[in-house]
């Protein structure tokens, strides 16, 4: 079932999350309602394209109800003759967490949802944009610099593995290019695997990001001998494990902030690194 109109989609999500989710999790509707902080109150009726409530699902022989006027579906849900589990297609309409902050920090935006993050601090600045193409799958582009001397530009994919109202877990894979201009130049392709964990709550979202970045640094050595020039190639490997621990702050469904501590251990374990910090702004749309 596909909803084209945003209003219908929103109303369907509200209705289904207000009634079908409690039934799916086996909870009384009042208990489940306390966990849905961001959802507005359920409307008085279902939209025309929404699935009918319990009696229509449970009683096959019953005639189809007239276009829907259901005042309190949550009252009809509990009881000895509880309705069968809702269809999977219906559950996919439930979007309990549709805030840009969650998608940007913990991954997994829904289809059409997009977001841009700008994080700045010491030593890392980053610009990150992603847009959802499927449920939880999103391509992303990221530009990061450390003190304007080390730049990494990456393209990647983000996929949410766990997408629950109070838990978001996603993985990312990125491929890009590293360019470092300083006394120690570094140039070469880089790749990164990242794990993002977020715990969304009503106003804030603690999050953790763990990553492992690898860069291949090709070098050319030319030896000019009396007999001619000999050229050899070699490749160095640079490993940069990264970690960020922070707190996201919801400002609006499409705006959020975050504060975090970073640790990027460039060229580990041969070097040492000091922790950093950042503040970020996240904006988006399509929600």
């Amino acid at each position: 079932m596909t909803f084209r109109m945003p209003v219908l989609r929103f109303l369907a999500a509200v209705c289904v999350s207000g009634w079908l989710l409690p039934a799916a999790w086996g909870l009384p509707s009042s208990q489940a309602a306390t966990g849905a902080q961001t959802e507005p109150p359920a409307p008085a009726s279902f939209p025309v394209s929404a699935p009918p409530p319990a009696p229509a699902l449970g009683d096959v022989a019953a005639p189809l109800p007239p276009p829907p006027v259901v005042d309190e579906p949550a009252v009809q849900a509990p009881g000895p003759a509880s309705p069968p589990p809702p269809l999977k297609a219906d559950l996919l309409l439930v979007r309990p967490v549709e805030r840009v902050l969650v998608d940007q920090l913990a991954g997994g935006p829904t289809r059409g949802a997009w977001g841009i993050s700008l994080q700045g601090g010491y030593p890392f600045f980053s610009l990150r944009a992603l847009v959802g193409v499927r449920h939880g799958l999103a391509p992303l582009v990221e530009v990061e610099t450390a003190l304007a001397r080390r730049f990494t530009t990456s393209l990647g994919l983000s996929l949410a593995w766990v997408r629950r109202p109070h838990l978001r877990l996603s993985g990312e894979v990125l491929l890009g290019w590293l360019l470092q201009e300083s006394e120690l130049p570094r140039r070469g392709p880089s790749g990164e695997l990242r794990l993002r964990l977020g715990i969304p709550t009503r106003w804030v979202m603690p999050y953790l990001v763990l990553g492992t970045r690898h860069a291949l640094l090709p070098s050319r050595t030319r030896i000019e001998r009396a007999s001619g020039i000999e050229t050899t190639w070699s490749v160095q490997h640079e490993w940069t494990p990264t970690a960020s621990l922070g707190l996201g702050i919801h400002i609006h469904r499409r705006v959020g902030l975050d504060l975090g501590a970073d640790y990027g251990w460039v060229d580990a374990p041969q070097s040492i690194a000091i922790p950093g910090f950042h503040i970020g702004l996240h904006v988006g749309g399509g929600r």
Partner: peptide
């Protein structure tokens, strides 16, 4: 200008 070579070493024997 940025190049794809990390380090270009030239030696004279």
């Amino acid at each position: 200008a940025t190049g794809c070579i990390n380090d270009d070493i030239e030696l004279y024997e």
